[in-house]
Amino acid sequence: MTEAPPVDWGWIQRQLDGVIADRLLEHLYLSFPPILLGLLVALPLGIASARWRPVYPPVLSGANMLYAIPSIALFYLLAPYTGLTPWTAIIPLALYTLAILVPNVVDGLNQVPDHVRQAAAAMGFGPLRRLLQVELPAAIPVVAAGLRVASVATISMVSVASVVGLGGLGQLILTEGFQRQFPTPIIAGILLSVLLAFLTDGALVLLQRWLTPWTRGRRAEAGRASRRARASSAPAREEEAVP
């Protein structure tokens, strides 16, 4: 072993405004669009699956199937069509989030007890108004739990996109670190990626609490939902993986 300390603080200080900041910013640009896009696609898919039962199994199987495809392969297979643009990373990463988000949207919508749904109908709520004013608000804690898992997974997966040449913290790890046999950028890249994931997670928790003041003080449901999401560790209820 060499005498050099494992982490070169001097390098970090020099690059804080340089390559580290650049890569971190790229990482942000590659992480958040897929999460948002994934949510935008998962909501209608989930609403349709909750309303029309037969839609759900094929949608879920498809999402699970996509989730199983290694990201590096999907990036390369898409590259001939999208080139070296952010879309090469955004499209696959958004597709991955579906395996987590769609089941959570469905579970969230199904959380509304039947008597509440019937009471809403009896008071003259139409299907659309009921969805917007009763079912979706009730679904927020569960959807937020799914969004947290999806965000953390996406942020860590963006690093793989760097291999294809799209930038991000993975680039710091690969080019600055591995190719120069220099551990400091690798450690910095890993820690920044983890930090970004946890900060996003924390921000989502705050956002959820702000959106759903009624769940404060009784967080059991959201807790249970995230516990389940955690247990299935991203993709899927075991049962519908293959029809």
């Binding site: 963006v158 690093s159 793989v160 913290l169 790890i173 890249g189 890993i190 990626s193």
Partner: peptide
């Protein structure tokens, strides 16, 4: 889950 596998 938060760890970037490639970095590890």
């Amino acid at each position: 889950r938060a760890l970037p596998t490639i970095g590890v």
